[in-house]
Amino acid sequence: MKRCAILSMDSLEEFEAYDDLLEQPLADLGWQMSFVSWRDKNVNWDDFNAVIIRSPWDYQDDAEAFLSVLEDIESSSAHLENSLDIVKWNIDKEYLKELADKAVNIVPTLWRESFNVDELSGFFEHFSQQQIVLKPRISANADNTFWLTKDNVKGMTAQLAKAFESRNFMVQPFMQSVIDEGEFSLFYFDGRYSHAILKTPKQDDFRVQEEHGGRLKTVEPEPELIRQAEIALRAIDSMPLYARVDFVRHGSSFALMEAELIEPSLYFNMDAASPKRFAQAFAAKMQKLAI
């Protein structure tokens, strides 16, 4: 039986993770999986035929060290999915600029290399909005993401200055549709659609992650949402093994919030057949690569 490492973190105790649901489908296809922390310095990556990045949800705390580990894996005999090239491209949310240049409909965004408190009022004016969102370009799990209003921004300046003193960041209008309807996530395995969910935040919040009280439900995406998701996928240079594309309703269409290609939760718990679809996509790709 071939060996596959599921790249995770030291402890997932505070998170909702569902990658254990892959164990049986992978075993049925001749793959034994093991959870391995990306911070474990004693791992011999040559012991594995493949490594799948799944839940290293603290990588943003030391992105340089995380990339170094991935470089070690790619230098070993193990095959890495998604690839290091994809991770390097996707780790900084500035990739959204490139997708926008390829006709992907993204949420309007300003990009900043450093924080200047004098610019804050101008952000509201730029988007003609009473509410905006600031978040780091390298982030996960909504860490250091701020929902600002013209009323609360003055009381947040010290916290913002600290959060972005050594981080470049992005500014977007607050998307009211996240509150009114939710955020759609569509999942693709080796370019093929698997399933979709709708994530809605708890009362008086905007974060849709389960860890922040977000609620989930399985949905059947409407044709326009599928169309926008596939436009986004085609704009990615190399088709990843797995992709999660997150959208919000924007006017008569949908706008891409993020294309998650590094460590997205794939919510295998929300679709009983999705673990098997993932395992089949993985095994078929490994077979093509003669791994």
Rank of each mutant, 00 (worst) to 15 (best):
E98K: 13
D190Y: 10
H195A: 15
G30E: 08
E94H: 13
S166K: 13
N105M: 15
Q228E: 10
R277A: 10
Q209C: 11
V117P: 02
M1H: 13
A50S: 11
D20I: 11
S177G: 01
V245H: 04
Q280I: 12
L96T: 04
S114V: 04
V248R: 07
L67Y: 10
G155S: 11
D237C: 13
F115T: 01
Y59T: 11
R192T: 09
M1Y: 13
K41W: 09
A158D: 06
I6W: 08
P264D: 11
L216I: 15
D62R: 08
E71T: 15
Q32S: 13
N82R: 12
I91S: 05
S75I: 09
G182I: 09
A5W: 10
A27Q: 07
V43Q: 04
I106K: 04
L26M: 14
K162E: 03
W31E: 01
V43P: 03
S114A: 09
V178W: 05
V51D: 12
F115Q: 01
I138T: 10
N168S: 07
E230H: 01
E258H: 03
L110T: 08
V43F: 02
D10Q: 12
W45V: 07
N82M: 13
N82A: 10
E263G: 02
A196F: 00
H250V: 05
S77Y: 06
F127G: 05
D20S: 11
Q209H: 14
I106N: 05
K217G: 04
N105L: 15
R167C: 03
E260R: 00
F123R: 01
I138H: 07
K93Q: 04
V153G: 03
S114M: 05
D143S: 09
D92N: 15
E71C: 15
L186E: 00
A229S: 03
R244D: 14
K202M: 09
D85K: 06
F189E: 13
A279W: 07
T145N: 09
D46K: 12
I53E: 12
S34V: 14
L233G: 07
R227V: 01
E94F: 12
A284T: 09
I236C: 15
S55E: 10
S128W: 05
K202P: 03
K288T: 06
